[in-house]
Protein backbone atom coordinates (compact mmCIF):
# COMPACT_ATOMS: atom_id res chain seq x y z
CA UNK A 1 0.00 0.00 0.00
CA UNK A 2 2.61 2.46 1.15
CA UNK A 3 4.90 1.26 -1.59
CA UNK A 4 2.40 1.99 -4.35
CA UNK A 5 1.80 5.47 -2.99
CA UNK A 6 5.52 6.09 -2.98
CA UNK A 7 5.73 4.83 -6.53
CA UNK A 8 2.92 7.12 -7.63
CA UNK A 9 4.70 10.10 -6.09
CA UNK A 10 7.96 9.16 -7.78
CA UNK A 11 6.13 9.02 -11.09
CA UNK A 12 4.41 12.36 -10.55
CA UNK A 13 7.51 14.23 -9.45
CA UNK A 14 10.15 12.54 -11.55
CA UNK A 15 9.29 10.01 -14.25
CA UNK A 16 6.11 11.65 -15.49
CA UNK A 17 6.53 15.18 -14.20
CA UNK A 18 3.65 17.07 -15.84
CA UNK A 19 5.67 20.13 -16.78
CA UNK A 20 9.18 18.78 -17.34
CA UNK A 21 8.46 15.40 -18.92
CA UNK A 22 4.92 15.51 -20.27
CA UNK A 23 5.25 19.24 -21.13
CA UNK A 24 1.67 19.98 -20.13
CA UNK A 25 0.27 23.26 -18.87
CA UNK A 26 3.13 25.27 -20.30
CA UNK A 27 1.28 28.51 -21.01
CA UNK A 28 0.36 29.38 -17.45
CA UNK A 29 3.68 28.08 -16.17
CA UNK A 30 5.67 30.39 -18.41
CA UNK A 31 3.54 33.39 -17.66
CA UNK A 32 3.21 33.07 -13.93
CA UNK A 33 6.70 32.11 -12.80
CA UNK A 34 8.15 35.59 -12.58
CA UNK A 35 8.36 35.11 -8.82
CA UNK A 36 8.51 32.18 -6.42
CA UNK A 37 5.42 33.19 -4.48
CA UNK A 38 3.35 33.33 -7.67
CA UNK A 39 4.66 29.90 -8.62
CA UNK A 40 3.78 28.51 -5.21
CA UNK A 41 0.21 29.85 -5.28
CA UNK A 42 -0.28 28.62 -8.84
CA UNK A 43 1.06 25.18 -7.98
CA UNK A 44 -1.17 24.88 -4.92
CA UNK A 45 -4.24 26.06 -6.82
CA UNK A 46 -3.63 23.54 -9.59
CA UNK A 47 -3.01 20.77 -7.05
CA UNK A 48 -6.27 21.56 -5.28
CA UNK A 49 -8.23 21.49 -8.52
CA UNK A 50 -6.44 18.33 -9.63
CA UNK A 51 -7.21 16.41 -6.44
CA UNK A 52 -10.88 17.43 -6.40
CA UNK A 53 -11.47 16.78 -10.09
CA UNK A 54 -9.66 13.43 -9.91
CA UNK A 55 -11.80 12.40 -6.96
CA UNK A 56 -15.03 13.38 -8.66
CA UNK A 57 -14.15 11.89 -12.02
CA UNK A 58 -13.15 8.69 -10.31
CA UNK A 59 -16.34 8.53 -8.26
CA UNK A 60 -18.49 9.20 -11.30
CA UNK A 61 -16.47 7.11 -13.74
CA UNK A 62 -19.13 4.42 -14.12
CA UNK A 63 -21.90 6.97 -14.30
CA UNK A 64 -20.44 9.21 -17.04
CA UNK A 65 -21.33 7.97 -20.54
CA UNK A 66 -18.38 7.40 -22.88
CA UNK A 67 -19.67 9.72 -25.60
CA UNK A 68 -19.85 12.87 -23.49
CA UNK A 69 -17.11 12.20 -21.01
CA UNK A 70 -14.93 15.16 -22.07
CA UNK A 71 -17.83 17.55 -21.61
CA UNK A 72 -18.54 16.05 -18.21
CA UNK A 73 -14.89 16.35 -17.17
CA UNK A 74 -14.77 19.97 -18.26
CA UNK A 75 -17.90 20.77 -16.27
CA UNK A 76 -16.39 19.18 -13.19
CA UNK A 77 -13.01 20.88 -13.68
CA UNK A 78 -14.42 24.33 -14.36
CA UNK A 79 -16.67 23.97 -11.34
CA UNK A 80 -13.72 23.28 -9.08
CA UNK A 81 -11.66 26.05 -10.64
CA UNK A 82 -14.49 28.48 -9.90
CA UNK A 83 -14.64 27.23 -6.34
CA UNK A 84 -10.88 27.56 -5.86
CA UNK A 85 -10.99 31.04 -7.39
CA UNK A 86 -13.77 32.13 -5.03
CA UNK A 87 -11.95 30.70 -2.03
CA UNK A 88 -8.70 32.44 -2.98
CA UNK A 89 -10.45 35.74 -3.58
CA UNK A 90 -12.03 35.47 -0.16
CA UNK A 91 -9.13 34.25 1.93
CA UNK A 92 -5.98 35.03 -0.11
CA UNK A 93 -6.96 38.20 -1.98
CA UNK A 94 -3.40 39.33 -2.64
CA UNK A 95 -2.50 35.98 -4.21
CA UNK A 96 -5.66 35.99 -6.32
CA UNK A 97 -4.78 39.49 -7.47
CA UNK A 98 -1.28 38.40 -8.48
CA UNK A 99 -2.40 35.32 -10.40
CA UNK A 100 -5.01 37.44 -12.15
CA UNK A 101 -6.29 35.96 -15.37
CA UNK A 102 -4.26 32.76 -14.97
CA UNK A 103 -6.38 31.60 -12.05
CA UNK A 104 -9.57 31.04 -14.10
CA UNK A 105 -7.41 29.77 -16.94
CA UNK A 106 -6.57 26.67 -14.90
CA UNK A 107 -9.71 25.27 -16.54
CA UNK A 108 -7.83 24.80 -19.77
CA UNK A 109 -4.69 23.46 -18.13
CA UNK A 110 -4.06 20.16 -19.91
CA UNK A 111 -2.69 18.45 -16.82
CA UNK A 112 -6.07 18.32 -15.16
CA UNK A 113 -8.01 17.04 -18.15
CA UNK A 114 -5.11 14.74 -18.96
CA UNK A 115 -5.12 13.09 -15.54
CA UNK A 116 -8.91 12.85 -15.53
CA UNK A 117 -8.81 11.09 -18.88
CA UNK A 118 -5.69 8.99 -18.38
CA UNK A 119 -5.93 8.03 -14.74
CA UNK A 120 -9.01 8.97 -12.75
CA UNK A 121 -11.48 7.62 -15.29
CA UNK A 122 -9.96 4.14 -14.91
CA UNK A 123 -9.03 3.96 -11.25
CA UNK A 124 -10.63 3.90 -7.83
CA UNK A 125 -11.11 7.14 -5.87
CA UNK A 126 -8.26 6.70 -3.37
CA UNK A 127 -5.47 6.08 -5.91
CA UNK A 128 -6.92 8.93 -7.95
CA UNK A 129 -6.57 11.33 -5.05
CA UNK A 130 -2.98 10.16 -4.57
CA UNK A 131 -2.37 10.62 -8.29
CA UNK A 132 -3.74 14.16 -8.10
CA UNK A 133 -1.49 14.92 -5.16
CA UNK A 134 1.56 13.40 -6.84
CA UNK A 135 1.03 15.16 -10.16
CA UNK A 136 0.25 18.41 -8.34
CA UNK A 137 3.43 18.04 -6.33
CA UNK A 138 5.44 17.44 -9.50
CA UNK A 139 3.89 20.49 -11.14
CA UNK A 140 4.43 22.65 -8.07
CA UNK A 141 8.06 21.60 -7.72
CA UNK A 142 8.73 22.34 -11.39
CA UNK A 143 7.03 25.75 -11.07
CA UNK A 144 9.02 26.53 -7.94
CA UNK A 145 12.28 25.67 -9.69
CA UNK A 146 11.35 27.81 -12.66
CA UNK A 147 10.16 30.67 -10.45
CA UNK A 148 13.19 30.50 -8.17
CA UNK A 149 15.69 30.66 -11.03
CA UNK A 150 13.81 33.46 -12.76
CA UNK A 151 13.25 35.54 -9.65
CA UNK A 152 16.73 34.99 -8.20
CA UNK A 153 18.62 36.04 -11.32
CA UNK A 154 15.97 38.13 -13.04
CA UNK A 155 15.19 40.33 -10.05
CA UNK A 156 17.79 39.40 -7.42
CA UNK A 157 15.13 38.43 -4.89
CA UNK A 158 13.45 35.32 -3.46
CA UNK A 159 9.91 35.62 -2.09
CA UNK A 160 10.41 39.34 -2.56
CA UNK A 161 13.40 39.44 -0.21
CA UNK A 162 16.58 40.84 -1.71
CA UNK A 163 19.28 38.18 -1.88
CA UNK A 164 22.21 39.76 -3.67
CA UNK A 165 21.88 43.23 -2.22
CA UNK A 166 21.41 46.58 -3.91
CA UNK A 167 24.45 46.46 -6.17
CA UNK A 168 23.15 43.46 -8.12
CA UNK A 169 22.21 44.19 -11.71
CA UNK A 170 19.28 41.94 -12.59
CA UNK A 171 19.52 39.89 -15.78
CA UNK A 172 16.37 41.26 -17.30
CA UNK A 173 15.86 38.58 -19.92
CA UNK A 174 15.01 36.02 -17.24
CA UNK A 175 12.01 37.92 -15.95
CA UNK A 176 10.72 38.54 -19.46
CA UNK A 177 8.88 35.95 -21.63
CA UNK A 178 11.92 34.76 -23.67
CA UNK A 179 13.72 34.00 -20.42
CA UNK A 180 10.81 31.81 -19.35
CA UNK A 181 11.14 29.71 -22.48
CA UNK A 182 14.91 29.44 -22.12
CA UNK A 183 14.83 28.43 -18.46
CA UNK A 184 12.05 25.91 -19.08
CA UNK A 185 14.01 24.46 -22.00
CA UNK A 186 17.12 24.13 -19.85
CA UNK A 187 15.14 22.45 -17.06
CA UNK A 188 13.63 19.97 -19.52
CA UNK A 189 17.09 19.21 -20.87
CA UNK A 190 18.38 18.71 -17.34
CA UNK A 191 15.46 16.40 -16.56
CA UNK A 192 16.20 14.27 -19.62
CA UNK A 193 19.86 14.17 -18.66
CA UNK A 194 19.04 13.04 -15.13
CA UNK A 195 16.62 10.41 -16.41
CA UNK A 196 19.28 9.07 -18.75
CA UNK A 197 21.77 8.78 -15.93
CA UNK A 198 19.31 7.36 -13.45
CA UNK A 199 20.47 3.77 -12.78
CA UNK A 200 17.03 2.61 -11.64
CA UNK A 201 15.71 3.11 -15.14
CA UNK A 202 17.58 1.30 -17.84
CA UNK A 203 16.70 1.72 -21.46
CA UNK A 204 14.26 -1.17 -21.79
CA UNK A 205 12.33 -0.02 -18.77
CA UNK A 206 12.22 3.44 -20.14
CA UNK A 207 10.95 2.25 -23.47
CA UNK A 208 8.25 0.28 -21.70
CA UNK A 209 7.17 3.21 -19.59
CA UNK A 210 7.14 5.43 -22.64
CA UNK A 211 4.92 3.10 -24.57
CA UNK A 212 2.69 2.78 -21.53
CA UNK A 213 2.52 6.52 -21.32
CA UNK A 214 1.60 6.95 -24.93
CA UNK A 215 -1.09 4.32 -24.54
CA UNK A 216 -2.52 6.12 -21.56
CA UNK A 217 -2.16 9.53 -23.07
CA UNK A 218 -3.95 8.60 -26.25
CA UNK A 219 -7.51 9.74 -26.39
CA UNK A 220 -9.80 6.84 -27.01
CA UNK A 221 -11.76 7.12 -30.18
CA UNK A 222 -15.32 6.03 -30.11
CA UNK A 223 -16.42 3.62 -32.76
Amino acid sequence: MFKTILKQFKEGVFDKNPLLVQILGVCASLAITTSVSNALYMGLAVTAVLVCSNLFVSLLRKFIPQQVRIAAYIVIISGFVTIVEMLMKAYLPSAAEKLGIFLPLIVVNCIILGRAEAYASQNAPFPSIIDGLAMGAGFTIALLLLGAIRELFGAGTLFGISIFGQSYTPIGILSSPPGAFIVLGCLIALMQYLKKDCPSMNSTQRRKSQSRMSKQGRIRHDP
Binding site: T169, P170, I171, G172, I173, L174, S176, P178
Partner: peptide
Protein backbone atom coordinates in the same frame (compact mmCIF):
# COMPACT_ATOMS: atom_id res chain seq x y z
CA UNK B 1 20.33 39.84 -28.17
CA UNK B 2 20.19 38.32 -24.70
CA UNK B 3 22.41 41.06 -23.29
CA UNK B 4 20.43 43.75 -25.06
CA UNK B 5 17.24 42.46 -23.45
CA UNK B 6 18.88 42.09 -20.06
CA UNK B 7 21.04 45.18 -19.73
CA UNK B 8 19.32 47.59 -22.07
CA UNK B 9 20.78 50.79 -20.69
CA UNK B 10 24.33 49.46 -20.32
Amino acid sequence: ACMLLSFTSA
